[in-house]
Amino acid sequence: MAIKKRFDVPFLGFGLGLRAPHYEELLSSSGQVDWLEIISENYMLDGGQGPHTLAPFKEKYTVIPHGVSLSLGSADALDKPHLKRLKALLSYLNPPWFSDHLCWAGVGGAHMHNLLPLPYTQETVEYVAKKIAIIQDTMGIPFLIENLSSYVEFQESEMTEWEFIKAIAETADCGILLDVNNIYVSSRNHHFDPMDYVRGIPANRVIQYHIAGHQDHGTYVLDSHDRPVRDEVWDLFAKTVPLMGDVSVMIERDDHIPPLSELLEELNHAKAIYTKNIYAPT
């Protein structure tokens, strides 16, 4: 199904996260990985490994910055020095978009170093949308919000998570990074049908996918990014693809990083599922 996207951004194909054990292979290989995603904060320190260390990768790949600490939903104000550092990174990379999570990561100046969920209320929608508008105005390129995996839900929530994401994306006029594994994880933890979630997301705003592995603890599922993608997530991905149109795909692995060849196998699997299902009847 052809879907006219809200933002005029390219389809990048199938990418991987840039991780240290793969630096050399990624620079010497060709054609196996279409694009790279970086953790923005790794290149936002005052000194040392700054954006300049990405130069050889930037020459060869489109590099997309993906953040973990904008803390969009925090009751604390946006961190201006942080935005300045992010702007410097974006200016250096000149990516077609950048992203961070729809979450909060700390309050009262203290950082939790985790991605914490928000109460799904109309008040929160309006608050977070205004912050996103400031970020987009400052950075001047499309911004994508990523759905979380979560382990708690708040009593005060007034809507479902997918209604919350849709409301924020439309109010702020931003894009969506749809993490298929996170939908699966949260569907198990909060007992909803993951396809209700997928169908509730505005397809014209979905620009990028994340796919990752998780751990099944029986009474809950943990988003761990430390193992191969499981079949149930591949199945959900296959069902999601025809509903969203052309969306760039990325495999995430942050822990127990395997040889690149193993991740390339997963990436090829993602490509096969995508190609098979992109024009499937919905």
């Binding site: 939903g73 925090s74 009751a75 604390d76 104000a77 946006l78 909060w104 700390g106 309050v107 009262g108 203290a110 939790m112 985790n114 914490l116 928000l118 109460p119 209320t121 008040e123 929160t124 309006e126 608050y127 205004k130 912050k131 508008a133 400031i134 105005d137 708690v152 708040f154 005060e156």
Partner: peptide
């Protein structure tokens, strides 16, 4: 654009959860 004011209930919820995790 002026920084938005956080909802009172959001402040209360986040302060509670932050303490509940760290204490």
């Amino acid at each position: 654009m002026h920084p938005p004011k956080p909802p009172a209930s959001l402040i209360k919820t986040q302060q509670w959860l932050s303490t509940a995790i760290r204490t």
